[in-house]
Design a protein around this nucleic acid. Structure first.
Length: 572
DNA sequence: GCCGTTTTCGGCCCGACTGTTTTCAGTCG
């Protein structure tokens, strides 16, 4: 079984091996290709089948050939050969913090060291003492790194929903303690990647020292790793690393561009600037000595002849060309969301639970709300909201708000105990490994609107394909957002490319600081979704549930059936 | 190894910080 993630990992290891061997530019070329492959929205096999491997950024003749080998055999002969040339322990060494390929290579060549254990022994035996470039501090730093590595590496990337409350708390703490003009969390957090490796916080202030002091004193901060004139790096309780940078107001835009990234986006911006005789760095855009932009992101992009690029798109997937030609998609925004078709309340909720929900929805300017009134748990057990609660949902008559009733079931026929429950549409929750479409939607005559797709293996196109097929057949929207039962942005991209629409949870009924809505919006935007691509950005009259008639709001006139895009009809 | 409205060879993003240095190499993001 081959996968994009595995292919990328092999290429990355090839890069490391070449690094240790002292190669100059090849390693970066392999890493570039690895990053591209990781951010593909489909399987390598599919790209190869179309003979389009070389259209992947950073993949040329040589790497394309190696990828073919990988797809055929599961490995790459060149990689196997390199592994025999370099002791495997060296890769571990160069991945230790503070060590790199140069140092690992020196240990190997000058001291015959082949891995962490031998390095530990060498330090204990004093063999590093007197080695050029290794003072006491350096040796101590290496000793620490070795100790941390032995204790396991806690610093893996973590899901963005874990980072959200942390980021909010840090920003609030900074604002409270220091006199700041701007604060922004940049990095992959701002691009709304599914996972973040660290947090990059950017502030403007006249008094960096004061900012660092305040920051260091925050309760979440466990340890200061590094502190310079403009930059401080800390470790939080729990091991998350945070970089805090203080810049001048006139530099804020360029710094924000620079630290929001991604790396490949930045590299492309810089080379674009070079072509125009300009230089871009975190301090601004310069023509010679003269600063031509820097205060805002808009200035920076426009000085390069580009329209402003939303952070979620800054991955070097063609967005810079699109910005140059004014062809960036118009991404879905918070204000586009006019409804929510997937709202849960507890299975034993009483009728008085409904009105506050409606009030909250109205506050968020929603026009309709789909409440799940009955469903199947993950274990197959069936639940139904108490009758008075269902009655209350049916009874709410509000000129500005329409309530809909959903049942949440598997892709097969509706289970018997739910057959008598009145509902408006189904939410399909995949309950078995392979969906059975033989009966599916037609069994009830009422199709589904929202597919509830588990994404544990979502990065693998092949694992997701059957569920996409279910959604296509049911003409269902698929839900994006954080958590294991929703699609991440890459899968959302796949969904969109197969003509499916997305559903974005709005967090209605959830606490105000619940990040689900923001993250889901971010994922949809990363998938380049516009309002048209989002089910719950459609007004009620345009909503067709289960491929049937549009839903009519109580006071609105009936509208015609929604026009289908060609080629998107479900199989007969 | 990749890549090109200055191309098929000759470049390859750029600056902060650290630790070792009397001017810089390595690492990191």
């Amino acid at each position: 079984m081959t996968s994009n993630a595995e292919a990328a990992e092999i290429l990355r290891t090839v890069a490391d091996l070449l690094d240790v061997l002292g190669e100059k530019f090849k390693p970066e070329a392999y890493r570039r290709a690895a990053r591209s492959i990781e951010s593909l929205t489909e399987g390598l096999g599919a790209v190869a089948a179309r003979d389009e491997l070389r259209t992947i950024p950073g993949v040329g003749e040589a790497i394309a050939e190696k990828l073919q080998e990988y797809l055929k055999t599961g490995t790459i002969p060149y990689y196997e050969r390199l592994k025999h040339e370099v002791p495997p322990g060296l890769i571990e060494l160069m991945r230790l913090p503070g060590l790199g390929p140069k140092t690992a290579r020196r240990f190997w060549v000058e001291l015959g060291i082949q891995g962490p254990n031998e390095l530990r022994d060498a330090i204990a035996a004093g063999r590093l003492n007197g080695l050029k470039g290794f003072g006491d501090k350096k040796i101590e730093q290496i000793r620490t790194a070795l100790g941390v590595a032995a204790a396991g590496s806690p610093s893996a990337r973590r899901p963005i929903e874990e980072a959200y409350p942390i980021a909010r708390s840090l920003v609030a703490g900074l604002r409270k303690g220091a006199d700041l003009d701007h604060v922004e969390v940049a990095g992959s957090f701002r691009r709304c990647r599914e996972t973040v490796g660290d947090l990059d916080i950017l502030v403007t202030s006249q008094d960096p020292t004061r900012v660092f002091d305040v920051f260091t004193a925050l309760p979440l901060v466990a340890e200061v790793k590094m502190r310079g004139g403009t930059k401080e790096t800390v470790l939080l309780q729990g091991g998350l690393q945070v970089d805090l940078r203080v810049v001048k107001p006139e530099e804020f835009g360029s710094a924000l561009v620079y630290f929001t990234g991604s790396k490949d986006h930045n590299i492309r911006l810089r080379s674009l600037a070079q072509d125009q005789g300009l230089k871009v760095n975190e301090y601004g855009v310069f023509r010679g000595e003269k600063r031509v932009a820097g205060a805002t992101e808009g200035d920076v992009y426009s000085s390069l002849g580009l329209t402003w690029i939303p952070p979620e798109l800054r991955e070097d997937r063609g967005e810079i060309d699109e910005a140059a030609h004014g062809k960036l998609p118009s991404l879905v925004q918070e204000r586009d969301l006019v409804g929510d078709l997937h709202v849960h309340i507890p299975p034993d909720a009483r009728p008085d639970r409904i009105d506050p929900l409606v009030a909250d929805a109205r506050k968020r300017h929603l026009q309709y709300l789909g409440v799940v009134v009955a469903g199947q748990g993950a274990d197959g057990s069936v639940w139904v909201l108490p009758e008075p609660t269902r009655a209350r949902i049916g009874a709410v008559r509000d000129s500005a708000m329409r309530l809909l009733r959903a049942v949440e079931v598997g892709p097969g026929p509706t289970p018997q105990p739910l057959a008598s429950v009145e509902f408006d549409y189904r939410i399909v929750r995949p309950t078995s490994l392979v969906p059975d479409l033989s009966e599916g939607a037609k069994a009830t005559g009422c199709g589904a609107l929202v597919a509830h797709v588990g994404s544990s293996a979502a990065h693998e196109a092949s694992a997701l394909a059957p569920w996409m097929e279910v959604a296509r057949t049911l003409r269902a929207g698929v839900e994006v957002g954080p958590g294991p039962e929703r699609l991440d942005s890459i899968s959302g991209h796949q969904a969109r490319e197969s003509g499916l629409r997305l559903h974005i949870p709005t967090g209605v009924g959830a606490p105000a600081d619940d990040p689900t809505r923001d993250i889901a919006l971010g994922f949809a935007r990363r998938a380049a979704a516009s309002g048209r691509d989002v089910v719950n950005a459609q007004p009620l009259g345009r909503l067709s549930i289960g491929g049937g008639e549009p839903v009519r709001s109580p006071r609105s006139r009936p509208s015609g059936p929604r026009k289908e895009r060609p080629g998107k009809r479900p199989p007969a």
